[in-house]
Amino acid sequence: MAHHAHTPGVIPPPRTRWIWNVFWVLLAVTIIEVFAALPSIRVHFGATFFKIFLISFTMFKAAAIVAYYMHLKDEVKNLILSVVLPFILIIYLIVLMLIEGSYVTLYRTVVEQILVQ
């Protein structure tokens, strides 16, 4: 090994099996997603279940890309935490927007009722 590192012009053979393994998983997940989203298949799911199913599959795909393709898994803990922890704020924003969204919907329906009267 050390001998190879000191010899100029000697290129070690590629080790790419893991890259293709991750690829097949990503491809399989994408195909399942597209298939499940087909209009004729989608109707068999409950609306909430369908959303949770799609979002969790998407999160899984995102995690696979970040961890393996972007090599975040191989970085030190300090870097992983610095990159991942800020996204707590995004979860917070989603929660805020869900609360605000149901309020705005309620408000709109009330205003529309008043306008009809």
Binding site: I11, P14, R15, T16, I19, W20, T30, I31, V34, I65
Partner: peptide
């Protein structure tokens, strides 16, 4: 769906390029 496949595929070729870079190939 095909577009998604194209982009994932180009991600794979990119990670292969990075891997080749590690080997100075």
């Amino acid at each position: 769906g095909l577009m998604t496949f194209i982009l994932i595929m180009s991600s794979v070729t990119m990670v292969l390029a990075v891997e080749a870079g590690h080997r100075n190939d």
